[in-house]
Amino acid sequence: MQWDFSPVWANWDFLALGFVNSLKVFVVSLLLGLPVGLALALMRLSQSRLLSWPALVVIEIMRSTPPIVTLFWVFFAAPLILGLRIGSFEASVVTLGIASAAFFAEIFRAGIVSVEKGLVEASMALAMTPAQSTRRVVLPIAIKRMVAAFFERSVELLKGTTLVSTVAYADLMYNANALVQETYRPLEIYSVVALFYFGFIYVASIITGRVEVYLARTGEAGGH
């Protein structure tokens, strides 16, 4: 067997373009997932069943279906139901965004629940409204406690972006497939792509790990 990496190096810009698209999907899904996740968490914590039940249903459905199944549903079935044209980019970010939102919601919720009741009562005693107490006391503490789980989920999302190649969005994996079909060098191309993903995600995990340690050191026990 002869290794020949020339197709990879000759087409590095094509692959780089794919990776930029992967990052685009990642960033947009994250920006969509965070607010939706926070909204779902607040709905779940609400006293009113009218709010908490729909949130629970969305969270359970998204957590119990493989993201690739949801993606196919959004790409092939949703356009017919809604009568809209949905492109592969939109389908990808909506699916990955809402799928991560379901996990973010549980992280937000666990973080919020972990904040001691006494702090909420103290803020009430200081005449804060529930909304003020949530925004000024509970969320700042909760967010710090959630950072580790939140980073872990974001790394999962980054890995999940490879799924979008299955609905023909031109991410790194899709471009790698196209290159393989053209050059018949699956071993070299897929190995380089796999190592690249590993390197990028590994560095991302290390950086997020450092940030966690830093945040933990700056005192979570209400040092501010």
Binding site: K159, G160, T162
Partner: peptide
């Protein structure tokens, strides 16, 4: 294996 996407691994095992 923790830091590589499953899809990439499956494709690698099948084609490479």
């Amino acid at each position: 294996f923790r830091n590589t996407p499953v899809l990439v691994q499956i494709i690698w095992f099948f084609f490479a």
